[in-house]
Design a protein around this nucleic acid. Structure first.
Length: 813
DNA sequence: GAGCATCGGGG
DNA sequence: GTGTACGATGCTC
């Protein structure tokens, strides 16, 4: 029988003659598009009868028939299987139906029978069920046997290839649109047309627009209407034939916009590989699907998965591209695009450049993030489209569902709404954070537990199935939680701890290889394994989880507290001064102790740790500063700055660095920390801060350093309190600029005796030196550094009104 | 302070 | 479509 090798890109199904037919969208190894159909797979779900009712249930199932208008739902076939459900062996009936849609109908009918215990896996989408049961892995090579009919390969057998290579160098095409928008942030796709569409591929650049102007740019192509622009867009997608289509928030903006405009202009958007149209599904989250072309929304992936490991707090394209690529967006005044479109089309070129640049950034971000998402696809076993739209808990859940099949486990059900409410109402104790003592320290040793939560779950066999097992009730060690008699099985490894152990050891092996050679794909795999492994703990305590277990989640944190205390107490007993600890890390001072004493101590801790748990050396920091909290004499948690051996400053939690403070405040803070930590010269740092204050007073600070930035949080009309930024926004409106929710407001506070809001001016309205020195001193520079100097014994008054400086005998505590 | 509502991203 | 979102933040009572 003819066989064919292919990369699987996407999957859907259709119904013909009361049979479901799986449709696989693939790319052959030589780059051609291919549709494969498999009509051998049938929907099913599981029923567990009550004890002694197996035959009764089975017989009743065979007779079950639900008539709904012309449609009849029935169980076509049953099988009896021994399965495992949360640690218990059960006899379950596998009930097949004709069509996927029969499953919910029949489940409703069976649900009320009093001879059944429970029903399982009735809500797993048909195509996902297919992916799990066949073990096919998207983006990697698969093999099908069968024959070609009418350009469609009819598969009889289908499986992963012997050597399942990953699709290398896929053809990615990114898109970005610009729209007519006279109302600022408020957008109306039913009213306002698309003005431009930019497309960017590896060797492809194009901007389509429908107003002519003279240009030398060959990538700009003029059309004569929005309708022809959209038609040309469809044509280009078909010509370029991308393996992946990407955009930035294209789920929620670009593609829905294109869809709406295509409907208004009566343009056929049949860009699916089966000629089906672009589908926009608007539930609570809007999604854009194209059959056969995985749609990769970079924003979705970053905001759900990658974002938390980035420094940026906003997920706008500009901030993300700057952090991940080191390239920013082009600056244009988008608020005026509509006016220029109407009145000055000769000025449109820079908007086309801007449009293309956004598509370029998106393309680069897609290339950069694809390896990680592809590794996730390979672990979880669902399509890129699906994985792209999942959060951490869903990734874990689908991974568990896939592995459940392989381990003969039945999946527990999702909670009912009643159950989720009950789960939401419960909480438990989290991580331990050591209250730091404010101070400037030297020779700080930092150790942390490697993958603390995952390694606890694995090493202590934590899972719903192993919780308070009957076999170990007397012998097992209890979880260190007061008032609880909790333990986890010590005889039989649980399904979840087994998987997490696998993830950890797989990652350890990869990291071993990575020590020798830097390989981007192995790095991505390591990253994907880490992200997934770290999500198990959260998953166990997440109220929507199938394998939810509050006992497991709270035992994990209880053990984490136990193990971190072990290090804190042990270090103190050895004579080290512990200055800080948060969740999985401990900071202590070396003082006069030799380094060997610290390494010996840590080796001793490691000897007693079970399983995969390990306390690792994180670093030695020659200097570090911990500042005090807003209130009281104790130190602020999660707020410190360290100097590494490589003489790099590591700042945590100083909010002024991140927020939209003026440059003069930010720069002063960083400079002060640098001098204190690198030169260990508080006096010089103090003088530096005083010098800045003096320069402010003498109006020598350039205006660009005193500009403040705020993004409008509300529509202008809804502001009751007129803060400086609202006053600035009003000024901008008076000058004819369109201001709405989200507009970036730049302003400067100028001198005078009126209220602050009456002294707000826009950057281009002020002369050099025209700023309110007192305002910048007291509201910007001083708050940015006063906590730092407080630690050093300088008071706020010293800083602002320079007199003789206080002399400190010892800078280091 | 709990409970409800909105927002994010995009032009 | 064998599915329904999520976590942070602000506003109101």
């Amino acid at each position: 029988m003819p066989a064919i090798d292919f990369y699987l890109l996407d999957i859907t199904y259709r119904v013909a003659e009361n049979k479901p037919i799986i449709v696989l969208f693939a790319r052959t190894l030589d780059g051609k598009r291919l549709i494969i159909e498999d009509d051998t797979f049938r929907p099913y779900f599981w029923i567990i009868p009550k004890p002694g009712q197996l035959d009764n249930v089975q017989e009743k199932l065979t007779k079950l028939k639900i008539q709904n208008n012309a449609e009849v739902s029935e169980i076509s076939r049953t099988e009896i299987r021994k399965k495992n459900l949360n640690g218990k062996e059960v006899e379950a009936i596998k009930a097949y139906t004709n069509l996927p849609r029969d499953v919910p109908v029949l489940r409703e009918a069976v649900k009320v029978w009093d001879i059944i215990e429970s029903i399982h896996e009735y809500d797993i989408l048909f195509v996902n069920r297919y992916m799990i049961d066949t073990s096919l892995v998207p983006m990697t090579a698969c093999t099908a046997e069968g024959k070609t009919e009418n350009n469609i390969f009819k598969a009889e057998k289908i499986k992963p290839s012997e050597d399942p290579q990953t699709l290398a160098d896929p053809n990615i095409l990114s898109l970005d649109i610009e729209t007519y928008n006279p109302e600022g942030k408020q957008m109306d796709m039913n009213k306002n047309p698309i003005l431009m569409i930019a497309l960017h591929g590896k060797e492809y650049k194009k901007v389509l627009t429908w107003k002519r102007f003279s240009t030398q740019n060959t990538y700009i192509e003029f059309l004569d209407s929005e309708k022809s622009l959209l038609e040309r867009f469809v044509q280009i997608i078909k010509e370029q034939n991308p393996d992946i289509l990407t955009g930035y928030y294209s789920d929620g903006f670009d593609l829905p916009y294109i869809k709406t405009r295509a409907e208004i202009n009566k343009v056929n958007l049949d860009i699916g590989m089966d000629n089906s149209p672009l589908k926009i599904s608007s539930g609570m989250t809007i999604k854009a699907y194209i059959a056969g072309i995985p749609h990769f929304d970079v924003f979705r992936f970053i905001s759900k998965i990658i974002g938390r490991s980035l420094d940026t707090e906003t997920y706008g394209l500009d901030a993300i591209a700057e952090e991940m690529l080191g390239i920013r967006k082009q600056e244009v005044d988008l608020d005026n695009l509509y006016a220029i479109w109407d009145n000055n089309p000769e000025e449109l070129e820079r908007f086309c450049t801007y449009n293309l640049h956004d598509a370029f950034l998106t393309y680069q971000l897609a290339v950069k993030n694809l390896p990680t998402i592809v590794e996730m696809v390979k672990i979880v076993g669902l399509t890129l489209y699906e994985v792209n739209r999942m959060g951490f808990s869903q990734l874990v859940e689908w991974y568990l569902l896939k592995e459940a099949k392989a381990h003969n486990q039945l999946a527990p059900n999702k909670p009912s709404s009643q159950q989720s409410k009950e789960r939401l109402a419960k909480s438990y104790q989290g991580a331990f954070v050591f209250q730091p003592k404010p101070g400037l320290y030297k020779d700080i040793m930092v150790y942390d537990y490697r993958s603390l939560y995952p390694s606890i779950i694995s090493s202590h066999n934590i899972s719903p199935a192993t919780f308070n097992c009957t076999c170990c009730s007397l012998s097992a060690k209890k979880v260190p939680l007061e008032g609880k008699e909790w333990w986890f099985c010590e005889k039989q490894k649980g399904f979840i701890p087994l998987l997490i152990e696998e993830l950890i050891t797989r990652r350890m092996r990869i990291k071993e290889i990575l020590r020798e050679s830097q390989d981007e794909f192995l790095k991505a795999r390591s990253n994907a394994l880490k992200l997934l492994g770290n999500s198990f703990y959260g998953y166990l305590g997440f109220y929507m989880s199938r394998w939810y277990s509050l006992e497991s989640a709270s035992s994990t944190t209880a053990l984490a507290r136990f193990y971190i205390h072990k290090v804190i107490d042990g270090a103190q007993a050895k004579g080290f001064e512990v200055i800080y600890s948060d969740t999985d890390s401990v900071f202590f001072l070396l003082k006069e102790n030799p380094l060997k004493k610290a390494t010996d101590f840590v080796a001793e801790i490691n000897r007693d740790l079970p399983g995969l748990m390990e306390l690792e050396y994180e670093g030695h920091y020659p200097a570090g500063i911990f500042v005090s909290a807003k209130l009281g004499p104790y130190g602020a948690k999660k707020k410190y700055a360290l100097l590494s051996e490589k003489r790099e400053i590591k700042i945590r939690g100083f909010e002024t660095v991140r927020r939209n403070w003026s440059a003069v405040a930010k720069e002063t803070q960083i400079e002060v920390l640098n001098i204190i930590l690198k030169e260990q010269n508080p006096e010089k740092a103090f003088n530096c801060a005083q010098a800045v204050i003096r320069q402010l007073r003498e109006r020598k600070v350039p205006c660009e350093k005193v500009i403040m930035y705020t993004r409008l949080q509300k529509e202008m009309a809804s502001y009751e309190a007129i803060g400086p930024h609202v006053a600035a926004a009003r000024r901008m409106q008076q000058r004819g600029q369109t201001i709405a929710l989200g507009s970036l407001i730049k302003f400067i506070i100028t001198p005078g005796s009126e209220k602050v809001r009456e002294r707000v001016k826009l950057p281009d309205e002020v002369q050099e030196g025209e700023y309110d020195a007192d305002y910048y001193i007291h509201n910007q520079v001083v708050p940015a550094v006063d906590k730092i100097f407080e630690v050093l014994g300088y008071s706020r008054e010293n800083l602002v009104a320079p007199k003789d400086q206080k002399k400190l005998d010892a800078w280091f505590v």
